[in-house]
């Protein structure tokens, strides 16, 4: 391994041409929202409450504030403060939000990353999905996404499991689901015996289905990151248990599903949109349930943002919101193999 004091350790992880290209793409993002009269906002990176989400690890810091010495949390997404703005009557807003998720390290992950998040009061989920696709089409060059104007292909979660794994994710017995996830996920038999249904579904989604989503017809199977064509696809109607704070509705098969979508391109998840639940009591119950699960698993508890609960209690306008991993879009647009290559100083070269 290279010692930290070698001569090149001070250098950026992205080259200058990439940083210029990145800046041009950021300009396009701002122009896209300016045209649509969506207001750019900046909300705190440090907050008095953090994300309680059991599988997101928040970073925190001890600070000396006017209120005394207190623990402040680095945001894992700008959601809470943006919802407080919406409740205060901001109207449609977007943010290029530096966010932090501890331990997320890899070719498509960096602990600190740029999340593009926006909220559309009064807009339905389908319209937001099309808007998200329209933005991504503006950012990906013709050489990567040639079908710029073709309609977004939309798959139901159930349909993908039928087609690729020949199971119905809503009704397959848990024992069979665990064995299938172990087999397809390169895990020894029994490794998932204590795991709930959603973990097994996540595993199959991530390892079997996702890698095949969003490729041009002839390109499937090529190594990701190679300069090659893809297409934009959406996945909708997730199981209700994966709703997080999305609304729920009943699908054509009579199952309750989550009103959310994810967009994929070349096997990579790019965006996650929700028809936002606006119920304060439900939000508070979710926070408490998350912290209870954290205690059970031996994870640190996270301070709850009671000001978000108060804002929801005051009233959040009906509408939808979406979070998009901007670094990943830039990575795909520029055909780079790692996220670090599109960041000036990726962790831990920071």
């Amino acid at each position: 391994m290279r010692p930290p004091h070698t001569e090149s350790a001070w250098q950026p992880t992205a080259d200058m041409a990439t940083l210029h290209a990145r800046a041009r793409l950021m300009t396009r993002v701002r122009a896209f929202f300016a045209e649509r009269n969506v207001l750019e906002v900046e909300t705190p990176v440090l907050g008095q409450g953090g994300s309680t989400d059991v599988h997101l690890a928040s970073l925190s810091s001890l600070a000396h504030t006017a209120a005394g010495r207190q623990r402040l949390w680095l945001r894992t997404s700008p959601e809470f403060h943006m919802k407080r703005l919406l409740a205060a009557g901001s109207g449609p807003i977007y943010q290029l939000a530096k966010s932090f998720r501890d331990g997320e390290v890899g070719r498509r992950h960096n602990i600190e990353f740029t999340m593009l998040e926006w909220y559309r009061p009064g807009m339905g989920l389908a319209a937001l999905m099309e808007e998200t696709a329209a933005l991504i089409r503006k950012l990906l060059p013709e050489s990567v996404l040639p079908d710029g104007q073709t309609p977004l292909r939309c798959y139901a979660y159930r349909e993908l499991f039928y087609d690729q794994l020949e199971i119905d994710p809503f009704s397959v017995p848990l024992v069979r689901l665990r064995r299938l996830a172990e087999e397809r996920g390169s895990m020894p038999e029994g490794a998932l015996d204590d795991e709930p249904r959603d973990t097994c579904l996540d595993l199959l989604m991530s390892f079997v289905i996702e890698p095949n989503l969003g490729w041009g017809d002839a390109e499937q199977g090529k190594a990701p990151g190679e300069k090659c064509q893809g297409k934009l696809v959406a996945v909708v109607d997730y199981p209700a248990s994966q709703a997080a704070l999305a609304r729920r509705h009943v699908d054509a098969y009579g199952d309750e599903v989550a009103s959310r979508f994810e967009l994929y391109f070349q096997g990579v998840e790019l965006a996650n949109g929700y028809d936002e639940l606006t119920d304060a009591a439900e939000q508070q119950a979710r926070f408490e349930a998350d912290n209870a699960e954290r205690r059970e698993l031996g994870f640190d508890e996270v301070d709850v943002d009671m000001r978000l609960v108060a804002a929801l209690d005051h009233g959040l306008p009906e509408g939808s919101g979406v979070a998009l991993g901007l670094d990943r879009v830039i990575q795909l647009a520029l055909g780079k193999y790692t996220l670090a290559e599109v960041m000036a100083f990726a962790t831990p070269a920071c």
């Binding site: 997320e104 996540d202 390892f207």
Partner: peptide
């Protein structure tokens, strides 16, 4: 390689 489904348990391949 880290594989992190949206809000679920993360895996390492």
């Amino acid at each position: 390689e880290l594989v992190k489904p949206g809000k679920g348990q993360a895996f390492n391949r």
